[in-house]
Amino acid sequence: MNWRHCVFLVCAFCLSAALAAGPARAQTRVGEAAVVKNEVVRVMASGTTPINVGDSVVRDETVRTGTDSATRLVMADSTNLSLGPNSTLKLDRTVFDDAHSYRDISIKLTTGAFRFVTGNSDKGAYKIQTQVATIGVRGTILDILSQRGKTTVVLRDNGASRVCTLTFQCIELTKPGDTAVITFAGGKYTIQKSSTPPWTFACGAAAGLCSTTQYADATPTITPPVDDGSDPTGMLCGR
């Protein structure tokens, strides 16, 4: 085998590994389902597949509950995220700081009712988005109702949350019961604060829905395994 043939084979191997690693990296495990009632599915381009207790949730994944359905997801940093009936969220972006915490994680709450209980990550790691609001979480419990043109955020425990419209009008929630209501109508965003929550997350929708548990195995895993950047041939492509 001459050197040109060797270089061609090595580069072909590297290209194949890179192509295989791309979709595999998208399967980084970021949490698991702790509670599942009735219809809870992951949504993919090819359709939907059911989620059962103990199943992984992965980066860039969309999770949806059906009518009379609910689920509680436990993230790798032991954040607990509950979804009520007819709710949809997307785990939009995740960057691990270490095996037990995130440096950066973004969650999109498309529609429905949610309860968010913070875990071990830095207070600035989580960025929660709805259709009309962005929500920062600082060590607390939040109930969030995302509807068409309206988001309601209720602070349920000690801690704080900064709630902003998409035009950067912001309110600080600092006491249990503090509530922000954001609406979008007639091309205009409005945000109002009160101390009387107009709504609360329905913990009775499923047994254990509002409990909190630690993530059993917080080490992020990737399925299937992907190339870690090492070169098993001892050669670099193109050299």
Rank of each mutant, 00 (worst) to 15 (best):
N38G: 04
S101V: 07
A33G: 03
K108N: 15
V40L: 12
T151Q: 04
T221A: 13
V43D: 06
K37P: 01
L173C: 01
E61D: 07
S195L: 05
N38T: 11
T71K: 05
S211A: 15
V132M: 04
A125D: 02
V163Q: 06
V132F: 00
L15I: 15
D122W: 13
N38P: 09
G208E: 00
P232W: 06
K127E: 14
K37F: 07
P232N: 03
A33P: 05
I128D: 03
A70N: 09
T62C: 04
V41M: 07
F184D: 04
T174R: 15
D228G: 10
C203A: 10
R162C: 01
T140H: 06
K127F: 11
C210Y: 00
G204Y: 03
G238F: 11
T165P: 07
V7T: 13
D228L: 09
L73H: 04
D231F: 14
G204T: 08
V58Y: 02
F8S: 14
Y102A: 05
V74T: 08
T118V: 15
L209Q: 09
L15P: 01
I141N: 06
L236P: 00
H100Y: 12
N80Q: 04
R115A: 05
T179A: 01
V117H: 10
S82D: 05
S101E: 04
E39A: 14
G204R: 09
T79S: 12
I105L: 14
A202M: 06
G204N: 14
L209M: 01
Q27I: 07
T140M: 03
A17V: 14
D217S: 11
S211E: 12
L9Q: 13
C11P: 02
I135S: 02
T223C: 09
G66T: 03
Y189E: 09
F116R: 09
L83C: 08
L73N: 02
G139Q: 13
D77S: 04
A18Q: 12
S230K: 06
D231S: 11
G84W: 04
T134L: 06
V57N: 04
R162Q: 10
